[in-house]
Amino acid sequence: MKGLSKLMVVAVIFPFLFLLLFSSVLAQEKAAADIKAELPVLLTSCGQSPGPIQLKAIMTVKRYNVNIVPVLSLFATADTLIALKNAGNPVKTIIIVTGASLKGMGAAGISIKDELERTEKLIAEANKQGILVIGAHIEGLDRRIMGAAEGDNSDELSIDAVCPKSGLLLVRKDGNPDGRFTTISKNKEIPMIEFEKNADLTDILNNLFKKK
């Protein structure tokens, strides 16, 4: 009898837990699908990887059929947002591509510390202006474990600086094998859109910036 009641408890609790987990994932996905971003969109980087260039290419080249002209500013600061607002062209969405490039930062003569400081101020100003911040990681493991030298955690620092403070996460699946972004998404209740291939961004961006 005792065994039976234990079985019943398991039979009730497991489906419940499964449903809870599944519904939370579903809710995240639904929430992500519901999010609508507005133009103009500013593309920038935290870590100076070429991700923003890739994202810009997806938005502009014919192959991907997105046809959005973003404002590309790899070193965008809070002042950039203020200046655009004062010029009567306020930014409505910012996509910050995470992932560090020593080549990129070295070329600009900056360190990851400079990047983190700039990004913190940028996000603070964006929040002040009510701009949607999208944290993106689109270069897979090249900008995670595989692309980093031993002891170099700049990729992870850039992720920490952006993703937990974003309103939406855009993550290529092969960059999330350890569930790092999934954890951020769950813990901070940030909707996340995961995609397999860069080409999938065509539909994602078209849906996100759906023209009215």
Binding site: P50, K56, A57, R63, G104, G106, N198
Partner: peptide, 25 residues
Amino acid sequence: HELAAVVSMVLTDMGEFNMGMEYSP
């Protein structure tokens, strides 16, 4: 940059091999 970005993304998307992109310092 744009040419390299698209080439690297399309090659990676094809699934045959991974191709990244880096800036020329």
